Simulated scan of single mutants.
Amino acid sequence: MKAILLNTTVLITLLLVIGLWWRGAVRLRFLPCPPWLSSFLENPYMDAVAGSSLILDRLNLAPGMKILDVGCGPGRISIPAAERVLPNGEVVALDGQPAMLKEVEKRIAVKNLTNVRTLFSRIDQSELEQNTFDRALLVTVLGEIPDREAALQHIFAALKPGGLLSITEVIPDPHYQFYGTVRRLAEAAGFQFDRYYGNWFAFTVNFIKPDQI
């Protein structure tokens, strides 16, 4: 029993040390969640506190909208979002890891969807076409971006006036960003606070790009 307790304590301590190192290192280099850890994003806990239906219900989506899913991973949100904006809407699934985009493309093929476009890019380094998107999503992604300020400025420019940015954070994601940090960064980029959902360990906060800038 003592050995089990000791091993558990060592494991927890190791995970905490790795998490703290990862949080600091990501400010200096691009260290997103690797593809082999994508199962962390798709499990009963995530479904309960930040499932795709829950997040998308907070976006007031409508057919014909154009959605930007930043750091889309394996497409957990991109695929159901694409289904909700049919028949004329589109989702751009953006990720900096080719392996993640390949998984999205596999799922698109299975679903026979034609309104999802994958984009290999890093949002803090690439400017998108301006005033294009109705909604932008960052689901457990903001803390993975080395230059969060630049990323939010690019998203701000890419959204249409009146467009919505939705940021979701969930513990125990090692890149978890506190609500105060999220709001400070978004408002510094020009966004206005709209709605807050959830609680401190799993929340979504929505921001609006003002009609008049």
Rank of each mutant, 00 (worst) to 15 (best):
L61H: 01
D57A: 13
S52L: 00
A82R: 01
D57S: 15
L56G: 06
P74V: 04
A82W: 05
S52I: 00
L61E: 06
I67P: 00
P63S: 13
G71L: 13
A81L: 11
K66H: 15
L59M: 15
N60K: 08
C72E: 00
I55Y: 03
N43S: 12
G71A: 13
N43K: 05
G51V: 04
G71S: 12
S78N: 07
K66D: 11
A82Y: 06
L54C: 02
P80L: 14
P74F: 10
I67M: 06
D57P: 00
A50D: 04
G51P: 01
M46E: 13
G73V: 10
P80T: 13
L61T: 02
K66M: 14
A50Y: 01
G51C: 11
R76I: 11
A48Q: 13
L56Q: 06
N60V: 02
M65F: 14
R76Y: 14
R76S: 12
I67W: 03
V70I: 15
D57F: 03
S78E: 01
P87D: 09
G64T: 05
L61K: 01
L54F: 12
R58T: 10
D69K: 00
A62G: 01
G75I: 02
S52G: 04
P44Y: 04
L68H: 09
G73S: 11
D57Q: 13
L59W: 01
I77V: 15
I55W: 02
D47V: 04
V85A: 08
A82I: 06
G64L: 08
S53R: 15
I67N: 01
A48D: 12
N43D: 13
S52A: 15
G73L: 11
D47T: 09
L56F: 09
I77Y: 15
I79D: 01
D57C: 05
A62W: 04
L59D: 03
P74E: 07
L54D: 10
L56K: 02
P80R: 12
L59T: 04
S78H: 05
A62F: 12
I55R: 06
L86G: 07
